[in-house]
Amino acid sequence: MTNLFEAVANTLKVKLDNEPKSPLHVGEVMSCWVYVAMMDEASIFMQAGVNMTTDDELLDMLKDSIEQCDKQSTKLKDFMKTEGVHLPNVSEPRPNSDPNSVPLGVKLTDDEIANGVSIKTASAIIACATGASQSIRTDLGTIWVDFLSEKLLFGTSLKTLLIKRGWIKVPPYYYPPGLPQQ
């Protein structure tokens, strides 16, 4: 079965070849700037998570997330530099450390780390969709659609891990008034 996001991206890429490049509008610039800051700061959070957990599955997920965040940030930074857009200042990368040496009052639990990644992934999905909907330029719209599909795929595997480990945070169930009892 054809992936919907790949089909949309391929359609946009075909159109892209014939599109004149207008300057980015302020909404496009803001979406790029905020997303680069989000990805770089998320990568820092994941690095801290790597320094705090010994769980193999969580470590693999964190490393996958770092790789994805760094790849997307680099791609968007290259685009922004080409367009003359200044890059945001972000935190410095974290050095490697021994998870067993992190004091208990400072160390995040695996549950907290995984849910932090979940929140950052959900925020990135929303940012990608917003960026895509605001983009006039097809080349930038294609970037957003690619990022969105990558984040959705990652989010699916993350949700599976959260459910498997009992870490997923579920809001209270809603039972509307008058709902028939089953």
Rank of each mutant, 00 (worst) to 15 (best):
G105T: 12
P172W: 01
A124H: 08
D64T: 11
V26M: 09
S22Q: 13
A122Y: 06
N18F: 13
Q181P: 02
T74M: 00
Q182R: 09
P99D: 09
T160C: 02
Q181G: 00
K71C: 06
G27D: 09
E28C: 05
N115F: 06
D111V: 08
V145W: 08
T160F: 14
D110P: 00
V145A: 06
S97C: 07
D146V: 15
K151L: 14
D56N: 02
G166Y: 08
R165A: 01
G49S: 04
T160Y: 08
S73G: 13
L140I: 12
S118L: 11
P177I: 13
I136T: 14
E28L: 03
V145G: 00
A124F: 05
M61N: 01
W33P: 02
M39H: 05
E6T: 04
K169S: 09
L59P: 03
P99A: 03
D56R: 12
L24Y: 02
P103G: 08
T74W: 01
M46F: 10
S31F: 05
L179T: 14
P171L: 15
L4D: 12
S149Q: 11
S149D: 14
F5W: 09
W167T: 00
K13H: 08
P95I: 13
Q134T: 14
A132D: 06
R94W: 02
L108R: 15
P23W: 08
Y175T: 15
L62D: 05
E83D: 03
Q182Y: 04
P20F: 12
K159Q: 09
E19W: 07
L24I: 05
D111H: 13
I163W: 07
I143L: 14
L179E: 15
V8L: 10
V90K: 11
I126G: 04
P99H: 03
S31K: 07
D110L: 07
F147V: 07
G84H: 09
